[in-house]
C-alpha cells in the first residue's frame, strides 16, 4: 500500500486516537505497571508520526502548532522542577516524595495537596510521569514534524 492508499487514510486517524489513549494509559499506570512518562509519551508521539506519514505534513488532521509545542514542552519541564523544589524546601532534598512522605517530615496540608488520588499511595510519582510524558510526546512529535518539513523544503 502506498502512502496515498485510501485504506491507510481511513484507518489512520482512528488508530492514532487509540494510540493516544494507550499512551495516556501507559503514563498514568507508570507507578504500578511497566511503562511511565517516556514510554507513554513515545506511544502518543507514535500516533502523531503515523498521521504525518499517512497524510503528509500538509494533509495531516493531527497538527501541532509552534505555540502548542512551546507551551507543553515548557510546562512539563517547569512543573518537574517545581515539584522537585517543593521537596527541597519542605523536606530538605530535591524531588522528595512529599505526597507519600515516608520520613514523616511534611505537614499534612502539603501532603494532601501532592497526594495522587488512588489506592497505592504513590505520592508525586504519577505527577512526574505526567510531566515527563508531556515533554516526551511533544519533543518526539516536534522532531518528526521538523524532519517532514525539511524533506518538503528540500523537495521544493
Amino acid at each position: 500500500m502506498s502512502q496515498g492508499s485510501i485504506i491507510l487514510k481511513l484507518i489512520g486517524v482512528p488508530i492514532a486516537i487509540l494510540l493516544f489513549c494507550l499512551g495516556v494509559m501507559t503514563i498514568l499506570g507508570g507507578h504500578i505497571t511497566p511503562g511511565g512518562g517516556f514510554q507513554g509519551g513515545a506511544m502518543i508521539a507514535a500516533g502523531v508520526i503515523l498521521s504525518v506519514f499517512i497524510y503528509g505534513i500538509d494533509g495531516s488532521p493531527i497538527k501541532f502548532s509552534h505555540l502548542y509545542i512551546d507551551i507543553l514542552e515548557n510546562f512539563g519541564a517547569l512543573m518537574f522542577i517545581i515539584f522537585g523544589l517543593v521537596g527541597l524546601f519542605v523536606a530538605g532534598s530535591f524531588l522528595y516524595n512529599v505526597g507519600s512522605d515516608i520520613s514523616n517530615v511534611v505537614p499534612t496540608v502539603i501532603r494532601n495537596i501532592f497526594h495522587y488520588p488512588d489506592v497505592t499511595n504513590a505520592g508525586i510519582i504519577p505527577y512526574l510521569n505526567i510531566f515527563v510524558g508531556l515533554k516526551v510526546f511533544v519533543g518526539l512529535s516536534a522532531i518528526v514534524i521538523a524532519f517532514a518539513g525539511f524533506k518538503k523544503f528540500s523537495e521544493e
Binding site: G4, I6, K9, L10, V13, I17, Y55, G56, D58, G59, S60, P61, I62, K63, F64, S65, Y68
Partner: peptide
C-alpha cells in the same frame, strides 16, 4: 489538535 483537514482526502 485533531482537526478535519480537506487536503487529507477523507472526511471523518
Amino acid at each position: 489538535q485533531v482537526k478535519n483537514n480537506p487536503i487529507s482526502g477523507v472526511n471523518f
